[in-house]
């Protein structure tokens, strides 16, 4: 790690202004991802801008009409232990339950989890890869078991966040502040693919900060769930994960949304699958048929074809387990 200056702005305006002005500065929330990147000399910012002094970004508010609002600096463990989250937003609860160890959740924030950088070996190693401004994605001919099967070209990372997958499934909205103005956008528009910009995973420009996550209210017929497949029990990123939010009526899904993690450089939706969830009859046969429709077009690499099978299987597992079939 190289030496850096440590800035402690007291309000979001000055944080944002500082970050806009100083191109070599970087925002620091929980730091569970950033400090690792700095220790490995992947990033060597001149200034680290601590956001934690900004008091009003740490909250969980719930209102039946407006839904759930979570400040970006809220610790993951606080969200995980929140009664409303557990009761009504199971998919979010499970995504946090699965995402890391208690130690990491006690310091990591929701905003940080959404904005974390990819886990790709080449991005995090001593390789001048395309995401760091080089011109090659070394995963294409290298070790690519953990890389994406869709949306990759020209950089085959997967988006590492579990909560991002759950939040897209919940139709969450993200509030972004640029130093002067605030805008609110749908979560799914926050994330970008490498063909838009291969050096970043979301639309944020320098100085822009994710401040709040707004999750719409949920009605009594809504059920939701998150399944994450890892190579070990804890402290592991998803091989593939799946989030589902469904409105149901008897044995029927009236409508719903399924989002995948671990398959693409952003949380990934398969339009065909979600279209088919309208008035979906929950029979074993239908579920299998639905699964077979997924991932028609993929761009698999040498070692990651299993993810296609896994993602398809997860549709089956998600529906069987969510609806106890």
């Amino acid at each position: 790690m190289k030496t850096f200056e440590y800035m402690q702005p007291e309000n979001i305006e000055s944080a944002s202004k500082f970050l806009t002005k100083n191109k070599d500065s970087i925002a620091f929330a929980g730091g569970t991802d950033l400090l690792g990147l700095m220790k490995d000399d992947i990033f060597s910012p001149k200034q680290l801008v601590n956001l934690k002094k900004i008091g009003d970004l740490n909250f969980i508010k719930y209102n039946e009409n407006e839904g759930l609002r979570i400040g970006a600096l809220t610790k993951l463990s606080e969200i995980e232990n929140h009664n409303i989250v557990k009761e009504k937003y199971n998919v979010l609860y499970q995504s946090i339950y699965e995402l890391a160890t208690p130690q990491l959740k006690n310091i990591g924030t929701l905003g940080g989890n959404i904005c974390q950088r990819p886990r790709c070996f080449y991005f995090r190693g001593d390789y001048d890869c395309i995401r760091k401004g080089g011109d090659t994605c070394f995963a294409i001919t290298g070790h690519n078991k953990y890389h994406c099967i869709v949306g990759g070209d020209p950089c085959y990372i997967v988006h590492p966040s579990d909560t991002a997958v759950a939040l897209v499934a919940l139709n969450a909205k993200f509030k972004i502040f640029d130093g002067k103005n605030e805008k609110t956008i749908p979560a799914e528009e926050f994330f970008i693919l490498p063909n838009v910009d291969e050096t970043k995973e979301n639309i944020l420009n320098s100085g822009e900060l994710l401040t709040e996550i707004i999750i719409p209210p949920i009605n009594n017929n809504t059920v939701s769930s998150y399944i994450k497949v890892k190579e070990r029990g804890a402290w592991d990123f998803a091989l593939v994960s799946i989030a589902g939010v469904f409105n149901k009526n008897d044995n029927k899904i009236t409508d719903g949304k399924i989002v995948f993690g671990g398959v693409a450089p952003s949380p990934w939706q398969d339009k065909k699958i979600n279209d088919n969830l309208v008035s979906f009859n929950l029979t074993q046969e239908n579920i299998k048929k639905l699964s077979s429709l997924a991932f028609e077009k993929t761009d698999v690499l040498e070692m990651n074809e299993y993810k296609v099978t896994l993602a398809k299987n997860l549709i089956i597992k998600l529906l069987l387990e969510t609806f106890n079939i």
Binding site: F121, R232, G233, A234
Partner: peptide, 11 residues
């Protein structure tokens, strides 16, 4: 020791 995976308590 994150990428080199050894068993965790849950395993």
């Amino acid at each position: 020791l994150h990428d080199y995976k050894i068993p965790t308590m849950l395993d």
